[in-house]
Amino acid sequence: MFEHMTPERTANAIMQDTTFNGTYLIVEGTKDFNLYSKFFNIDDTVEIKQVGGKEKVRDIIKILEERKFNKKIGIIDADFSKILEEDQLVQDIFSTDYHDSEVMMFKSPALETVLYIYVTKKKLDEFMSGREIKESLLNIAKEIGLLKLANDLHSLGLAFKPKKIDGKNLKYKDFIDEKTLQFKGKEQLINTVFNYSINRSIQMVDKELVKQKIEELSEKEYDLLQLVNGHDLSNILFLLLKKSLRSSKKSLSDYNAIEDSFIMSYEARYFMETELFQNLYKWSSSNDANLFKEDIKELYQKMNVVEV
Protein backbone atom coordinates (compact mmCIF):
# COMPACT_ATOMS: atom_id res chain seq x y z
CA MET A 1 0.00 0.00 0.00
CA PHE A 2 2.85 2.40 0.81
CA GLU A 3 4.84 1.77 -2.37
CA HIS A 4 2.27 3.61 -4.50
CA MET A 5 2.34 6.73 -2.34
CA THR A 6 5.34 8.86 -3.26
CA PRO A 7 6.51 11.61 -0.86
CA GLU A 8 5.26 14.19 -3.35
CA ARG A 9 1.76 12.70 -3.45
CA THR A 10 1.59 12.49 0.33
CA ALA A 11 2.79 16.08 0.74
CA ASN A 12 0.25 17.22 -1.86
CA ALA A 13 -2.57 15.39 -0.07
CA ILE A 14 -1.63 17.05 3.22
CA MET A 15 -1.57 20.54 1.76
CA GLN A 16 -4.80 20.08 -0.18
CA ASP A 17 -6.77 18.87 2.84
CA THR A 18 -8.67 21.96 3.97
CA THR A 19 -10.81 20.03 6.46
CA PHE A 20 -8.00 19.57 9.02
CA ASN A 21 -6.22 22.46 10.73
CA GLY A 22 -4.10 20.59 13.24
CA THR A 23 -0.61 19.07 13.14
CA TYR A 24 0.42 16.16 10.93
CA LEU A 25 2.63 13.52 12.54
CA ILE A 26 4.53 11.52 9.90
CA VAL A 27 5.74 8.06 11.02
CA GLU A 28 7.39 5.12 9.32
CA GLY A 29 4.85 2.30 9.63
CA THR A 30 1.74 0.71 11.10
CA LYS A 31 3.26 -0.23 14.44
CA ASP A 32 4.52 3.31 14.90
CA PHE A 33 0.97 4.48 14.32
CA ASN A 34 -0.36 2.01 16.88
CA LEU A 35 2.19 3.12 19.48
CA TYR A 36 2.08 6.89 19.11
CA SER A 37 -1.69 7.09 18.69
CA LYS A 38 -1.88 6.12 22.37
CA PHE A 39 -0.35 9.44 23.38
CA PHE A 40 -1.21 12.00 20.72
CA ASN A 41 -4.49 13.87 20.48
CA ILE A 42 -5.64 12.15 17.29
CA ASP A 43 -9.30 12.86 17.98
CA ASP A 44 -8.96 16.60 17.50
CA THR A 45 -5.59 18.18 16.76
CA VAL A 46 -3.18 15.54 15.41
CA GLU A 47 -3.39 13.35 12.32
CA ILE A 48 -0.87 10.51 12.08
CA LYS A 49 0.26 9.41 8.64
CA GLN A 50 2.22 6.18 8.20
CA VAL A 51 4.24 6.41 5.02
CA GLY A 52 6.36 3.26 4.70
CA GLY A 53 9.90 4.04 5.78
CA LYS A 54 12.37 6.50 7.24
CA GLU A 55 13.43 8.05 3.94
CA LYS A 56 9.82 8.83 3.04
CA VAL A 57 9.33 10.53 6.41
CA ARG A 58 12.38 12.71 5.74
CA ASP A 59 11.37 13.49 2.16
CA ILE A 60 7.80 14.45 3.07
CA ILE A 61 8.94 16.74 5.89
CA LYS A 62 11.50 18.38 3.58
CA ILE A 63 8.92 18.95 0.85
CA LEU A 64 6.47 20.47 3.32
CA GLU A 65 9.22 22.68 4.76
CA GLU A 66 10.16 23.93 1.30
CA ARG A 67 6.51 24.81 0.74
CA LYS A 68 6.40 26.75 4.05
CA PHE A 69 3.96 24.29 5.63
CA ASN A 70 4.71 24.39 9.34
CA LYS A 71 2.12 22.12 10.95
CA LYS A 72 4.12 18.93 10.64
CA ILE A 73 6.54 16.75 12.62
CA GLY A 74 8.14 13.39 11.95
CA ILE A 75 9.32 10.55 14.16
CA ILE A 76 11.90 8.07 12.87
CA ASP A 77 13.94 5.22 14.31
CA ALA A 78 17.50 6.10 15.29
CA ASP A 79 18.84 2.82 13.83
CA PHE A 80 22.66 2.96 13.86
CA SER A 81 22.89 6.76 13.60
CA LYS A 82 23.91 7.35 17.21
CA ILE A 83 26.59 4.64 17.10
CA LEU A 84 27.97 6.10 13.88
CA GLU A 85 27.54 9.67 15.15
CA GLU A 86 25.51 10.58 12.10
CA ASP A 87 23.26 13.62 12.13
CA GLN A 88 20.22 12.07 10.50
CA LEU A 89 17.70 14.69 11.51
CA VAL A 90 16.22 17.58 9.64
CA GLN A 91 14.05 20.31 11.08
CA ASP A 92 10.85 19.02 12.73
CA ILE A 93 12.00 15.38 12.74
CA PHE A 94 12.76 13.57 15.99
CA SER A 95 14.31 10.15 16.53
CA THR A 96 13.84 7.41 19.11
CA ASP A 97 16.16 7.39 22.12
CA TYR A 98 17.49 3.98 21.17
CA HIS A 99 17.80 1.91 17.99
CA ASP A 100 14.05 1.89 17.38
CA SER A 101 10.71 2.19 19.16
CA GLU A 102 10.70 -1.51 20.10
CA VAL A 103 14.03 -1.14 21.91
CA MET A 104 12.65 1.97 23.61
CA MET A 105 9.77 -0.13 24.93
CA PHE A 106 12.07 -3.05 25.80
CA LYS A 107 14.16 -0.72 27.98
CA SER A 108 11.09 0.25 30.00
CA PRO A 109 9.16 -1.71 32.69
CA ALA A 110 6.84 -2.79 29.88
CA LEU A 111 9.19 -5.75 29.39
CA GLU A 112 8.11 -7.36 32.67
CA THR A 113 4.45 -6.82 31.83
CA VAL A 114 4.92 -8.52 28.47
CA LEU A 115 6.74 -11.47 30.02
CA TYR A 116 4.06 -12.08 32.63
CA ILE A 117 1.27 -11.92 30.08
CA TYR A 118 2.55 -15.24 28.77
CA VAL A 119 4.33 -17.02 31.65
CA THR A 120 4.45 -16.87 35.44
CA LYS A 121 7.30 -15.17 37.25
CA LYS A 122 8.16 -18.45 38.96
CA LYS A 123 8.47 -20.30 35.67
CA LEU A 124 10.63 -17.56 34.16
CA ASP A 125 12.90 -17.33 37.23
CA GLU A 126 13.43 -21.09 37.28
CA PHE A 127 14.40 -21.12 33.63
CA MET A 128 16.76 -18.15 33.91
CA SER A 129 18.42 -19.70 36.98
CA GLY A 130 19.93 -16.45 38.23
CA ARG A 131 20.60 -14.94 34.80
CA GLU A 132 19.25 -11.44 34.30
CA ILE A 133 16.57 -11.60 31.62
CA LYS A 134 17.19 -8.21 29.99
CA GLU A 135 20.95 -8.76 29.82
CA SER A 136 20.53 -12.26 28.38
CA LEU A 137 18.22 -11.07 25.61
CA LEU A 138 20.48 -8.14 24.76
CA ASN A 139 23.57 -10.33 24.54
CA ILE A 140 21.94 -12.60 21.98
CA ALA A 141 20.52 -9.68 19.99
CA LYS A 142 23.98 -8.10 20.08
CA GLU A 143 25.35 -10.83 17.80
CA ILE A 144 22.71 -10.15 15.16
CA GLY A 145 23.18 -6.41 15.62
CA LEU A 146 26.91 -6.69 14.91
CA LEU A 147 26.20 -8.57 11.70
CA LYS A 148 23.62 -5.99 10.63
CA LEU A 149 26.03 -3.16 11.43
CA ALA A 150 28.77 -4.86 9.40
CA ASN A 151 26.34 -5.27 6.52
CA ASP A 152 25.41 -1.60 6.78
CA LEU A 153 28.98 -0.32 6.94
CA HIS A 154 30.55 -2.57 4.32
CA SER A 155 27.68 -3.31 1.90
CA LEU A 156 27.96 -7.06 2.36
CA GLY A 157 24.75 -7.75 0.44
CA LEU A 158 23.03 -9.69 3.23
CA ALA A 159 19.25 -9.83 3.64
CA PHE A 160 17.48 -10.05 6.99
CA LYS A 161 13.84 -9.76 6.00
CA PRO A 162 11.59 -10.95 3.17
CA LYS A 163 11.08 -8.94 0.02
CA LYS A 164 7.30 -9.11 0.44
CA ILE A 165 5.17 -8.76 3.57
CA ASP A 166 3.95 -12.36 3.30
CA GLY A 167 7.42 -13.76 2.57
CA LYS A 168 9.31 -16.20 4.77
CA ASN A 169 11.11 -14.70 7.76
CA LEU A 170 14.62 -15.42 8.96
CA LYS A 171 14.65 -18.58 11.14
CA TYR A 172 16.06 -17.50 14.49
CA LYS A 173 15.90 -21.06 15.79
CA ASP A 174 18.71 -21.94 13.37
CA PHE A 175 21.20 -19.95 15.44
CA ILE A 176 19.46 -19.86 18.86
CA ASP A 177 18.76 -23.06 20.78
CA GLU A 178 15.02 -23.25 21.43
CA LYS A 179 15.32 -25.30 24.61
CA THR A 180 18.06 -23.35 26.38
CA LEU A 181 17.88 -19.96 24.61
CA GLN A 182 21.63 -20.14 24.08
CA PHE A 183 23.32 -18.55 21.08
CA LYS A 184 24.74 -21.29 18.84
CA GLY A 185 27.68 -19.18 17.69
CA LYS A 186 28.72 -16.66 15.05
CA GLU A 187 29.40 -19.37 12.49
CA GLN A 188 25.82 -20.63 12.69
CA LEU A 189 24.42 -17.09 12.59
CA ILE A 190 26.45 -16.16 9.51
CA ASN A 191 25.53 -19.39 7.72
CA THR A 192 21.84 -18.87 8.49
CA VAL A 193 21.79 -15.28 7.23
CA PHE A 194 24.00 -16.11 4.25
CA ASN A 195 21.66 -18.92 3.15
CA TYR A 196 18.60 -16.72 3.75
CA SER A 197 20.11 -13.99 1.57
CA ILE A 198 20.36 -16.26 -1.49
CA ASN A 199 17.70 -15.13 -4.00
CA ARG A 200 16.88 -12.16 -1.73
CA SER A 201 20.00 -10.14 -2.45
CA ILE A 202 21.37 -8.87 -5.73
CA GLN A 203 25.00 -9.56 -4.85
CA MET A 204 26.64 -10.94 -1.71
CA VAL A 205 30.29 -10.80 -0.80
CA ASP A 206 32.35 -13.86 0.06
CA LYS A 207 31.42 -15.51 3.37
CA GLU A 208 34.99 -15.17 4.65
CA LEU A 209 34.79 -11.38 4.23
CA VAL A 210 31.57 -11.38 6.26
CA LYS A 211 33.37 -13.26 9.05
CA GLN A 212 36.29 -10.83 8.93
CA LYS A 213 34.10 -7.74 9.18
CA ILE A 214 32.01 -9.04 12.04
CA GLU A 215 35.16 -10.01 13.95
CA GLU A 216 36.53 -6.50 13.51
CA LEU A 217 33.35 -5.01 14.96
CA SER A 218 33.28 -7.54 17.80
CA GLU A 219 36.47 -6.01 19.20
CA LYS A 220 34.72 -2.66 19.79
CA GLU A 221 32.41 -1.58 22.61
CA TYR A 222 28.89 -0.43 21.75
CA ASP A 223 25.86 0.78 23.62
CA LEU A 224 23.71 -2.31 23.14
CA LEU A 225 20.49 -0.31 23.19
CA GLN A 226 21.76 1.52 20.09
CA LEU A 227 23.13 -1.64 18.45
CA VAL A 228 20.34 -4.18 18.83
CA ASN A 229 17.21 -4.22 16.69
CA GLY A 230 13.76 -4.39 18.27
CA HIS A 231 12.57 -6.85 15.64
CA ASP A 232 15.35 -9.23 16.69
CA LEU A 233 14.49 -8.82 20.37
CA SER A 234 10.86 -9.64 19.62
CA ASN A 235 11.82 -12.82 17.78
CA ILE A 236 14.15 -13.89 20.60
CA LEU A 237 11.41 -13.21 23.15
CA PHE A 238 9.02 -15.30 21.08
CA LEU A 239 11.46 -18.23 21.15
CA LEU A 240 11.87 -17.84 24.92
CA LEU A 241 8.17 -17.70 25.71
CA LYS A 242 6.76 -20.09 23.11
CA LYS A 243 9.54 -22.65 22.71
CA SER A 244 11.77 -22.52 25.80
CA LEU A 245 8.99 -21.89 28.35
CA ARG A 246 6.16 -23.41 26.29
CA SER A 247 3.59 -20.72 26.98
CA SER A 248 0.08 -22.06 26.45
CA LYS A 249 -1.38 -18.69 25.45
CA LYS A 250 -3.05 -19.08 22.07
CA SER A 251 -2.49 -15.40 21.30
CA LEU A 252 1.27 -16.02 21.17
CA SER A 253 1.34 -16.97 17.50
CA ASP A 254 4.54 -15.22 16.34
CA TYR A 255 6.84 -12.27 17.04
CA ASN A 256 4.06 -9.86 16.04
CA ALA A 257 2.17 -10.84 19.17
CA ILE A 258 5.21 -9.80 21.22
CA GLU A 259 5.42 -6.41 19.50
CA ASP A 260 1.68 -5.83 19.90
CA SER A 261 1.97 -6.74 23.60
CA PHE A 262 4.77 -4.19 24.02
CA ILE A 263 2.60 -1.48 22.50
CA MET A 264 -0.31 -2.34 24.81
CA SER A 265 1.98 -2.49 27.87
CA TYR A 266 3.95 0.70 27.21
CA GLU A 267 2.46 3.33 29.47
CA ALA A 268 2.44 7.10 29.08
CA ARG A 269 4.66 7.53 32.14
CA TYR A 270 7.37 5.44 30.46
CA PHE A 271 7.13 7.51 27.29
CA MET A 272 7.39 10.72 29.32
CA GLU A 273 10.82 9.68 30.57
CA THR A 274 12.27 9.57 27.07
CA GLU A 275 14.23 12.29 25.35
CA LEU A 276 11.92 11.82 22.37
CA PHE A 277 8.86 12.85 24.40
CA GLN A 278 10.62 15.82 25.95
CA ASN A 279 11.74 17.08 22.53
CA LEU A 280 8.21 16.69 21.19
CA TYR A 281 6.78 18.48 24.23
CA LYS A 282 9.16 21.41 23.73
CA TRP A 283 8.22 21.56 20.04
CA SER A 284 4.55 21.52 20.98
CA SER A 285 5.02 24.42 23.40
CA SER A 286 7.18 26.46 21.01
CA ASN A 287 4.78 26.03 18.09
CA ASP A 288 1.57 26.45 20.07
CA ALA A 289 0.46 22.97 18.97
CA ASN A 290 -1.81 20.77 21.03
CA LEU A 291 -0.06 17.45 20.38
CA PHE A 292 -0.81 15.30 23.41
CA LYS A 293 -3.92 13.98 25.05
CA GLU A 294 -5.13 16.09 27.93
CA ASP A 295 -4.53 13.47 30.63
CA ILE A 296 -0.96 13.01 29.43
CA LYS A 297 -0.26 16.74 29.58
CA GLU A 298 -1.70 16.93 33.08
CA LEU A 299 0.32 13.94 34.27
CA TYR A 300 3.50 15.33 32.73
CA GLN A 301 3.05 18.65 34.48
CA LYS A 302 2.45 16.91 37.82
CA MET A 303 5.60 14.85 37.37
CA ASN A 304 7.60 18.08 36.95
CA VAL A 305 9.84 16.41 34.39
CA VAL A 306 10.50 19.80 32.84
CA GLU A 307 9.49 23.28 33.85
CA VAL A 308 6.25 24.12 32.09
Rank of each mutant, 00 (worst) to 15 (best):
L64F: 04
H99P: 07
K107W: 10
D77A: 00
Y116P: 13
D125F: 13
K56N: 09
D59N: 11
A110F: 02
N70A: 12
K56D: 15
I75D: 09
S129E: 05
K122A: 09
F127Q: 03
N70K: 00
A110P: 12
K82Q: 10
K62I: 08
Q88F: 06
T120S: 14
V103G: 00
S81C: 04
L115R: 12
M104P: 04
I61D: 07
L84K: 07
K122H: 15
K68F: 08
E126S: 14
I73C: 07
S81L: 07
R67C: 08
I83R: 02
R58N: 14
K134W: 03
K71H: 10
Q88C: 13
E65W: 02
I93H: 01
I63V: 14
E86F: 03
F94M: 09
A78K: 04
P109I: 10
F127W: 03
V114Y: 06
S95I: 11
D77C: 00
I73F: 09
R131I: 03
I93N: 09
L115T: 11
D125K: 11
K72P: 14
S81M: 04
E86Q: 15
M128C: 02
H99K: 01
K56Q: 11
F69L: 11
D100V: 09
Y116L: 08
D100R: 03
S108C: 06
F94Q: 02
I75V: 02
K72C: 10
V103P: 13
I76A: 00
K123E: 07
E102T: 08
V119C: 10
V103T: 04
Q88G: 15
G130V: 00
L124C: 07
S101G: 09
E55F: 07
G74M: 04
R131K: 13
Y98F: 06
I117G: 12
V90F: 15
Q91P: 13
V103Y: 03
T120E: 10
Y116E: 07
D97Q: 06
L111K: 07
L84T: 07
E86T: 06
V114K: 01
Y98W: 05
F94W: 01
G74V: 00
I73S: 02
K72F: 12
I63C: 14
L89E: 11
K68H: 15
M128T: 15
E135L: 05
D92T: 01
K122V: 14
D87L: 14
D92M: 01
E66G: 00
D100I: 00
M128V: 01
L124P: 01
L64N: 08
D87I: 10
V103Q: 04
D92S: 09
K62R: 12
V103F: 06
M128I: 11
K122W: 07
I75T: 10
K121I: 06
P109K: 14
L115Y: 14
S81W: 01
L89M: 07
E112S: 12
E65N: 14
T96G: 05
N70D: 12
D79G: 09
T120I: 01
E112N: 06
T113A: 15
I75C: 02
I117A: 09
A78C: 07
S129Y: 15
D87Y: 14
I133A: 04
I60D: 11
A110S: 13
F69R: 04
G74I: 01
F80V: 04
D125I: 06
K72N: 06
D100H: 03
F127S: 13
I60F: 14
P109N: 02
